[in-house]
Structures are given as C-alpha cells and as structure tokens.
C-alpha cells in the first residue's frame, strides 16, 4: 500500500518539476513546438529505458489492440484543453478546476471499475476523503490569491 503511494508521489514530484521546465521552454517557443519537444523527449526516454530494461522484448507487442495506437492523442487533448482554459480563466483557476476534475474522474472510474481498474465500492469515506482533498486544492491555489487582493486594496485607495 505505502509503496504504491510513495511511487505515485515520486511521479508527482517529477510532474511538478517537468511543468516548471516546460514553462521555461514555452516562454521562448510556441505552444506546439513546446508540446512536440516535450512528447518527443518523453518518447526518446521511454524507448531508451525500455531497451535498457527489456532489450528486444520491447518490440514484442503481443496483445496490441488498435486503439492503443491512438492513446497518445489523449496527451494532445490535455494540452489543448489546459491551454484554452488558461487563456479564458487564467492559470490559477484553470489549474484548480483541472486538478479537482482529475480526482473526481478518478473516483468515478474506480467505482465503475472502468478500463480494467479494480472496482472499488463507493463509500462514505471515499466521498469524504476526496472532498477534503478538493478543499485542500482550493486552499492551496486560492489562499494566496485572496491574500494578495486584500493586500492590494490600500494601494488602490492611495492611488
């Protein structure tokens, strides 16, 4: 149990780091150049790791199904949606909503046993846990914003 959580946290820390790196690329390059580079690097690294870990076995795609070839489009969908949402709502609100949506969909699919996930019955604890997490996301993302707004007020009055 703890191993799974720690591994997920390790991945999450890398996602945070990657977001910062990608942000720095995006400052100098157009959105699609950035996305192409990011996914290209992901491909190169996965290929290299796969070859190191499995050698030629990497190319043995026994149970390959047609739709697997389209799974990469999901990542492109992420970029399109987040870019548009950020344009319309600003980064703080766009990411807050996207983070909350992530955990909401995750709970829904877990309780449906969708995509071969191990079906878990929906319980009160799960609903409460997810609601507390959602609250935490809102406090994290909006806590500073509220503080900034109140700090700005006296300046405005003075001006």
């Amino acid at each position: 149990m703890w191993q799974g959580l720690l591994l997920a946290a390790f991945g999450g820390a890398l996602v945070g780091l990657q977001n910062i790196f990608n942000k720095r690329v995006h400052e100098k390059a157009s959105p699609w150049t950035t996305t192409t580079l990011v996914l290209g690097m992901g491909f190169a690294a996965s290929l290299l790791m796969g070859l190191l870990m499995e050698g030629e076995q990497l190319f043995n795609l026994g149970n390959m199904k047609l739709w697997f070839w389209f799974s990469g489009v999901i990542g492109v969908g992420v970029v399109v949606c987040i870019t548009q949402a950020t344009k319309l709502l600003g980064p703080t609100y766009a990411t807050s909503i996207a983070l909350i949506s992530q955990i909401g969909f995750a709970l829904w699919w877990d309780t449906q046993g969708w995509m071969g996930l191990e079906k878990v019955p929906f319980t009160f604890n799960q609903a409460a846990g997810v609601l507390i997490i959602v609250g935490g996301i809102l406090v994290f993302k909006l806590g500073g914003a509220v503080k900034l707004r109140s700090a700005r007020k006296p300046l405005k009055d003075a001006g």
């Binding site: 959580l5 997920a8 955990i103 995750a106 877990d110 996301i137």
Partner: peptide, 16 residues
Amino acid sequence: SVGLTLTVAAVLIAQL
C-alpha cells in the same frame, strides 16, 4: 497497486 483515486491524490500532493 492502489487504484486510480489514491494514485491521483498522491501525485497531486507531491506535484503541488
């Protein structure tokens, strides 16, 4: 090992 919900939760905490 722990399902999608717990994975997403742990990812988000570490990411933030």
